[in-house]
Amino acid sequence: MSDSILVIKDVWKTYEIGDERIEALQAINLDIEKGSFISIIGHSGSGKTTLLSVIGGLTEPTQGSVSLDGADVWKLNDAGLSALRNEKLGFIFQFSSLIPTLRAIDNVALPYIFQKRNNTDIYGRAEKILSILGLSKKLNSFPSELSGGQQRRVAIARAFINRPSIILADEPTGDLDAQSESEVMEFFSEINEKEKTTFLLVTHNMELAGMTDRIYRMKDGILTNGG
């Protein structure tokens, strides 16, 4: 039995804007094992965010299939897709992604609300993750009371709350200073090692990519092994 967590087969994504056809993804094939720590690098507009979006069940590919932990993502119905996002996936976006009317700790606990499983200590776990990320004094703060970096760390904490199988992170340390960036990457490594969580990071930061086990390169919608 294969130990793959993510298998992408011949994925294409074409955007048609007027008469113009833009091939955002071209014949992408990828097989990622459980517990991998991978990064995809590339310039802005190279298609790396689109790829994450297709993997996460957010953007439907024009062609091809994506299998995540044995489930064919784009053959799932709405309920199946929701359950997959909730239980298997953790998203970290490059933009501010907190719900402005909820406190930091509520934002972290949010994915749990959509879960059918019972987990009474979710706030304990949320508090623990926020503390690791240096936000123990900001639990009850609203997003508007947090700096950009603090908001990013809350969003990172939220991605881990449901113990996902794979983390899809789009420029995860974008708003962070060097020290915070290092702490966050350390946290990622620890989770990767202890909980065997797979990481797929998209970044244009070579230094960050260098901290992962394997680097892929994206250019004009084509994915190549970056070495």
Binding site: G56, L58, D78, A79, S82, A83, L84, R85, N86, E87, L89, F91, S97, I99, P100, L110, P111, F114, Q115, R158, N162
Partner: peptide
């Protein structure tokens, strides 16, 4: 944007 976020967290219809 919030609705999209909730969906990525697994909120069903």
């Amino acid at each position: 944007r919030d609705i999209g976020l909730l969906k990525t967290m697994g909120a069903s219809k």
